[in-house]
Structures are given as C-alpha cells and as structure tokens.
Design a protein around this nucleic acid. Structure first.
Lengths: 244, 244
DNA sequence: AAGAATTAATCAATCGATTAACAAGTTATT
DNA sequence: AATAACTTGTTAATCGATTGATTAATTCTT
C-alpha cells in the first residue's frame, strides 16, 4: 500500500511538472509567434520605407504587403513614426558590437585593424543594402529631429571606432602623421554609400546592374575591398609632405 | 508749309518708333517679371524639396513660402511633378558646360586636369548644396523612373568626363596601369557627397557645423581640395603591385 | 468570464488638382 | 475710335482621393 501511495504521489508530481512544461513551451511558442509577426512587419516596413521614403510609404501599403490589418501597426507600434523608429531599434544591437571588438584586439597592427574594418564594413553594408539607403535618405532631411538624432547616434558609433584606429596608427607611426583622419573616414563611408545608395549611377558606371546579387557578391564586394585597401594604404602609409 | 508738313511727318514717325520701343521694353519687362516670378517659385521649391523631400513637401507649403496662390503652381508647371522637373531643367545648362572644357585642354597633363576637376567640383558642389541633396535623395528611391532617368543622365555627364581623363592618364603612363578607374570615381563623388549630404554626421565628425557658410568656405573647401588631391595622387601615381 | 489580439468601419485632416469668377491687357470688328 | 471678343494672370473655393489614426465590435486565448 505504501508503494502505491508513493507511486501515486510521484505520478501527480510528474503530471504537474509536465503541465508546467507544456505551459512554458506553449508560452514560448506564442511569444515566438508574436515576435515573428512583429519581425515580419518590420521586415516589410523596412523594405517599403527604403523604396519609397518615410513620406512616400503609406501605412496601408505596409500593412497590405505584410498581410495584416492596418490597425495592427498602431496597436503594435503606436504610430507610423513609432514603426519607423522600431526598425532602427531592432538594428542597434548588431551595430554596436560589430567593430569595437576589432579595435580592442592588441595583437593586430593599426593597418590590419583598419583593413579588417573595411572588409567587415563592405561585407555587412551590402547585406543591409536597403536599410542603409533608408538611413541615408532620412539623414539628408533637414527636419524631423528625434529620428535624425537617433540615426546619427547609431552611425557615429562606427565613425568613432574607425577614428580611434586611425589615431592610434598615427601615434604608433604606422600611418603618416599629416593624414587627414576625418576626411579619410568620409572617403571610407562615402565611397561605399555612393556605390550602394545610387544604384542607377553606379550600375552605369560599372557597366553591370549593381542590384544583381550574384554580381554584387562575386565581383563587387571583393573588388571594393581590394580597392579601398590599396587606396588607403597608398595615402596613409606614404609620406605626403613632398606633394608640393 | 513744306517744312511743317515734313516736320509733322517726322514727328509722327518718331512717335510711332517711340511707341514701338515702349511696347518692346514693356514686353521685355513683363517677360522678365514672369521669368523672375517663376524663378522665385523654383528657388523656394528647390529649398523646400531639398529640406523635406518630394513627398514630404506639399504644394501648399511651397506656394505659401513663395507668396503665390497655390493654383499658380499648376498654372505654371502643370503639376507637382512638373514643378519638380522644372527645377532640374533649369540646372541642366550649368551642368553641361562645366567639365568638358577641361578635358579638351591639350596643354595640361592628365594629373593637372584631374586636379582642376577636383577643385572645380568641390568649389561648385558646395554652392549648389541643397540641389545636390535633392538629387541624391531622389536617386535612392526605387520608383519614379522618368525623373530618375533624367537625373542619372545629367550626373553621368560628369562621370564620363572624369573617366576620360583617368583613361587618358593610364594610356599616357602618368597613372599606374592597374588602378580601378570606376571606383576612383566612386571615391571622388562619394567623399564629397558624404560631407555635404549628411551634414549631421559630418558636422560631428569634423567638430564644427558644416552648414556654417564661412567655415565651409574658408576651412572645409580648401581642406577637401588638398585632401582629395593627396589621396588620389598617392593611389594613382604609385605602383600598387607590391601591395600583397 | 477576462483580457489580448484582430477586424471592419469610420474619423478628421491634408493631399494635389480643378473649377469658376474676376482683373487686366490684347486683338478683332464695326 | 469705340466696343466686343479673346487671351493671360490671379484668386478663393471646392473637388475627390488618400493620409494616419481611432473606434467599437468580434474572435481567440487563457
């Protein structure tokens, strides 16, 4: 009798545990569904915004393409601007941890760090193609300050990181002491932006549609990496004093 | 009597001539008024569009700031898009004759030509600041093809001209033969665009408000000129083969 | 039954564009 | 030379369409 009572007790405990486990799993599943749905909306919104701009894209269009009711956008994100900001919030994490690990690596020379930054940057930025376009277009607007500030803040993380590498390189006499650090940064980001943000121009310039993913992956990315490193190496590691 | 008759005739002829002159002058004056008025609207529209984007700017806002009735915009330019296109039509002339004179000058070396192009480009582009922003923002849009084609066509004039200079320089062995001509062009235009089109970023980067005209004129323009020439000279006129 | 998710319907506001009316000047007709 | 007809420039009022947002009802989940 004692054994049966004991077994019954164990069985009840197990049942309880199983129920808790089921609840937990179901809860996690539901959270996952919710997140996936929000994520899906953000994916669609990111693409539509980058194609048409903030003002050019309508909430109806986004909700339509995402296959959800229009009111859901306001239910989830409060407003159109809230949706727009949510796109950026989602990206911040991946931005923050990207370059700073490189900068802190003591085993690499300043040039190697910079070269690695360039590789990473070219690699990553072309993946986030439409997001970059989105960022850049809204940055050229004069108004809408809260959003602009947030974007600026995000982008400055990268700028500061590269600046640190360049300054260190000068201090360690790996780079020439009279280089224009700030304009070098403008060249790094500007060259890449020119290629990916104005595809109509750069496609004509390069003689091939830049939006062709295979071409971009196999030809353009390695080519830009090689070019940027040669260009910067020539400038940073030569003595430019005798240029007059 | 004959004299009086002759004088009367002369007087009539003179009166007639004067009247014709007055009409002519008045007509020209009116044309000038008309052109000035249209020009004024285009000036305002250019600024508003560049601040807020095509979709962000409303015809009411433009007509309001220009001090004209809203219907006048449609009367003059047909539609909002017509107004937008008119801004570009007005600029085409100044674009076309800018660089092509340099390219045809036989007395200059390829490097001198390129250096002069850079000087001219930096000088001019910062004057047309808001127009450049306007161009660049609309170029990043995926849709709106007629306008995009027109802008692309205009900008390619500059690209082709610089490309010709670079190709000539390679042929004359002034530039290294393994340079990446197309990406050099991306660097020239991209660096400048980065500075003037994303003023929030570049102001933080440079530690001074880039929209301060005096600072721009006295500090930034000469600095960018020097930098661009050093950067390109180091890359174009060095042997990059030993970079591996 | 309580609360969260979702829907269709509707809100006021603003959009670009059009209309009709009027003023001023030009041309044509008598 | 005088008047009618027409063109051009300009205005206020209004058009239908679309915008972002909200509501109230409904479905689903717990």
């Amino acid at each position: 009798m004692l054994i049966i009572k004991r077994l019954t007790q164990d069985c009840n405990e197990m049942t309880h545990s199983i129920n808790r486990l089921i609840n937990f799993v179901q809860e996690k599943e539901m959270d996952k569904d919710k997140i996936d749905k929000k994520d899906h909306i953000l994916d669609v919104a990111e693409r539509v915004f980058s194609d048409l701009g903030f003002d050019g894209a309508s909430t109806r269009m986004i909700s339509g393409e995402a296959g959800v009711n229009m009111a859901m956008l306001n239910y989830y994100f409060g407003s159109k601007e809230g949706l727009f900001l949510a796109i950026f919030e989602r990206k911040i994490a991946s931005f923050q941890t990207l370059l700073q690990n490189i900068g802190n690596d003591e085993s690499m020379s300043s040039w190697d760090k910079l070269a690695k930054c360039i590789d990473n940057y070219v690699e990553r930025i072309i993946v986030n193609n439409c997001f970059q376009k989105l960022i850049n277009r809204e940055l050229t607007m004069s108004k809408r300050s809260e959003l602009t500030d947030k974007i600026t803040q995000i982008l400055m993380l990268n700028v500061v990181e590269i600046k640190k590498i360049l300054d260190d390189g000068i201090k360690n006499k790996i780079f020439a002491k009279d280089i224009d650090v700030q304009l070098v940064i403008a060249t790094i980001f500007g060259t890449k932006n020119y290629i990916v943000n104005t595809p109509n121009i750069s496609s004509l310039l390069l003689g091939h549609d830049i939006r062709d993913e295979k071409y971009l992956e196999e030809k353009i990315k390695p080519r830009v990496k090689v070019y940027m490193k040669r260009l910067l190496k020539a400038y940073l590691m030569n003595d430019n004093d005798n240029s007059k």
